[in-house]
Amino acid sequence: MESGSGDGSSAFTATNDDLPMEAELLKRAWRNEKAAPQILQFDADLVQRSRELIKLMEETVEDFRSNGDDPLTVSLYQMDVDRTHFLLRSYLRTRLQKIEKYMFHIQKTPELWNRLSRQEKRFAERCTGDMEQHLQQSVLSKLPSIYHSHLRQSSSSEEDDMVPEPQLNTYVICRSKRYLGAFQLDDSGEDPVTIEADDLYALPYKSIKPLVETGQIDLV
């Protein structure tokens, strides 16, 4: 993008505006998901469209093969499909890793729970069930009854203090495509940060969370 933004690339985007967008959007979702400490909203439409696109292209490649087309062309199409396939799988896998890591936290936080897809919810449910059962069987059931909860240290704890949560005050490296102007990091009265277009910033995730979720800023 950065180096090839000459006159040639604009001609491409003018002729086919929706196809290359898919690949770009998927890459962006993948990057954000990888860099964000907590799970982001599942992009159901994007995943659906990418799946269809991959399927369509795989059929095309099969057609080329059976027609005995130029093997070079076929292999190039195949590479293109493989690349998109990799992105999609890595995106889904990154999400599963986060779900496994913070399953109890996600399960008891409705805001996060609603970010999961139907399949991911099923995965999370089975995951939490299995983990709970495992903890009960291997350790908790052998302890005195006040320690039986897998969410709390003991029954005297006021809140669930044994649930791992993502660190939201961690710093992330981000970049905005447009000039966002002065941005207040938090309410501590510090000077606002001016966010210029295409520059990298290291900022606390908590402060820029709304910008990430509305797609105004990209994590890198």
């Binding site: 993008m1 950065e2 180096s3 090839g4 000459g6 040639g8 690339s9 491409f12 002729t15 086919n16 196809l19 290359p20 898919e22 690949a23 890459k27 990057r31 696109l53 991959i54 292209m57 130029d70 070079l72 062309t73 190039l76 199409y77 293109d80 499909v81 690349r83 998109t84 990799f86």
Partner: peptide, 26 residues
């Protein structure tokens, strides 16, 4: 992998039809 999506100029030495790929038309 991400860097491989950047554009670059090539001079082909063969003839090939345009490619209509997921990441664009070339």
């Amino acid at each position: 992998f991400v860097a491989e999506d950047e554009m670059i100029e090539i001079v082909p030495n063969m003839r090939m039809d345009p490619l209509d790929l997921i990441c664009g038309k070339f």
